[in-house]
Write a protein that binds this DNA or RNA. Structure first.
Length: 116
DNA sequence: AGAATGACAGGAA
DNA sequence: GTTCCTGCCATTC
């Protein structure tokens, strides 16, 4: 088990927030990718919890999507539209209700893994 | 203490 | 491509 996986709840939360803050504008990744980046490869749901309880307005939460490219909120809900708008403002378009991110996700994972 | 819940994932069918 | 099912982590009933 890695050091990150042995970390306390608060430490895990900070690692996850750091991983999200590292996302550049226009870059979208999945919850699982953030979890991996935080050293917690099985904690995708924890990432969701952390985001749900986040209060930092500077956090680029809108760059985190489900693995299938869908926005995690209920379709057409206020939160869903807000996330779509924020993404669109960064040049990320939704096609058929989802973002084309197969390649991107893999690319960023590879870049991050390569950097580790 | 056990069950239910949620901004989830990955493999199977 | 899809939907379905099982596994995950932590919190809340």
């Amino acid at each position: 088990m890695s050091a990150a996986e042995r970390a306390s709840g608060e430490q895990r939360r900070q690692r996850i927030l750091d991983a999200i803050r590292a996302l550049p504008s226009g870059c979208v990744v999945s919850y699982a990718t953030i979890a991996r980046r935080a050293g917690l490869p099985r904690a995708a749901r924890l990432v969701a919890r952390v985001l749900a309880s986040n209060d930092d307005p500077e956090l680029p939460w809108h760059r985190v999507l489900r693995a299938d490219g869908c926005i995690a909120f209920p379709p057409d809900s206020p939160a869903w539209r807000e996330q779509r708008d924020r993404l669109r403002a960064e040049g990320v378009e939704l096609r058929g209700g989802r973002v084309r991110m197969r390649r991107d996700d893999d690319l960023h994972r590879l870049l991050w893994n390569a950097a580790d």
